[in-house]
């Protein structure tokens, strides 16, 4: 039982980690604490529904469609809405992201109607037994794809020139401007990436259950994940996601399903008190 619960928590946590990674990329680049990340997840799920059920695209094309559209929407949101608020108090920016999610939710519900949508993809379903564990193929795929994305983005930030530029920009906007980096382009890119990562998470969550705007609350678990892991830290976000997934499942199994949210936030409060910069964050940047 324990191993089974642990496995499902890790699989779920991998998806949270992916969404949290997107959140962290956005935060690192623009210092926006993005409450709309949950709705970005929903957008990803609906983009997949559009590509697969409405446009009837073949699966690889559909994947491409979701990725490109997600990146575009993210960049557009950054340049039209986020950029004008650069340098404003954090609360105003947080409110802006909340307003964005209100608008996105209403827009989605108008465009797609009230009934929830089913998302079926050629991804494997069913399960198999492995070392006494029942492994769900979809969970395993979700976890593997999430990890692949995480590694891919890790390499991208570390080794490509654009990734390096993005990191440099995130570290210091002034220094970046002086050295001729186009800060706005970098920020747009960060939002595009952040949105895309959330969207990929949405595609999996939509398949695990059903596509509706209610997926938002699952996507929002990325917030505590990022804080627990360390807001400025990319690996921290992934670790935080894993932890949130595992705690959620363990609390549901051994305390009660009601307790899963509070368990996550108790950990978050403890982390804030002991290590405000998060598990893998760097000390000294706890003043925002």
């Amino acid at each position: 039982m324990f191993q089974q619960v642990l496995f499902s928590g890790m699989a779920l946590g991998s998806i949270y980690g992916l969404v949290a990674l997107g959140f962290a990329v956005i935060f690192k680049a623009t210092e926006v604490f993005n409450f709309a990340q949950g709705m970005f997840v929903v957008c990803g799920a609906y983009l997949a529904v559009t590509a697969i059920a409405i446009l009837d695209l073949p699966f690889p094309v559909a994947v491409l469609f979701v990725l490109v559209m997600a990146a575009l929407i993210g960049a557009v949101i950054q340049s039209t809405l986020i950029q004008p608020l650069a340098g404003r108090p954090i609360l105003a920016v947080i409110m802006l992201t909340i307003a964005i999610s209100i608008v996105l939710r209403a827009g989605i519900e108008i465009a797609y109607g009230p009934p929830a949508r089913t998302l079926t993809t050629p991804m494997p379903s069913g399960g198999f037994a492995f070392m006494g564990l029942m492994i769900s193929k979809l969970h395993l795929t979700a976890a593997l794809v999430s990890w692949a994305c995480v590694i891919l983005f890790g390499l991208f930030f570390r080794y490509t020139s654009i990734g390096l530029l993005m990191r440099a920009t995130a570290d210091s906007h002034e220094a970046a401007t002086i050295s001729g980096i186009r800060v706005n382009t970098m920020n747009r890119l960060a939002w595009g990436i952040g949105f895309t990562l959330a969207a990929i998470g949405g595609v999996f969550l939509g398949q695990l259950q059903i596509v509706s705007t209610e997926l938002e609350s699952i996507g929002l678990l990325a917030l505590p994940a990022v804080v627990i892991g360390g807001m400025q830290s990319i690996p921290g976000a992934v670790l935080g996601g894993l932890l949130v997934g595992v705690i959620e499942q363990l609390a549901a199994a051994y305390i009660s399903p009601k307790a899963s949210d509070v368990a996550i936030y108790v950990l978050l409060l403890a982390i804030l008190m002991v290590r405000p910069w998060g598990l893998l964050g760097q000390r000294g940047i706890n003043r925002v």
């Binding site: 998806i15 259950q209 499942q249 549901a252 199994a253 051994y254 899963s260």
Partner: peptide, 19 residues
């Protein structure tokens, strides 16, 4: 057996159910 409204996975409850 109770589950959360917005759960993404209910493996613990399903294990309890199967038991």
């Amino acid at each position: 057996i109770s589950v959360k409204v917005t759960a993404a996975d209910i493996t613990p409850q399903i294990l309890e159910l199967m038991a």
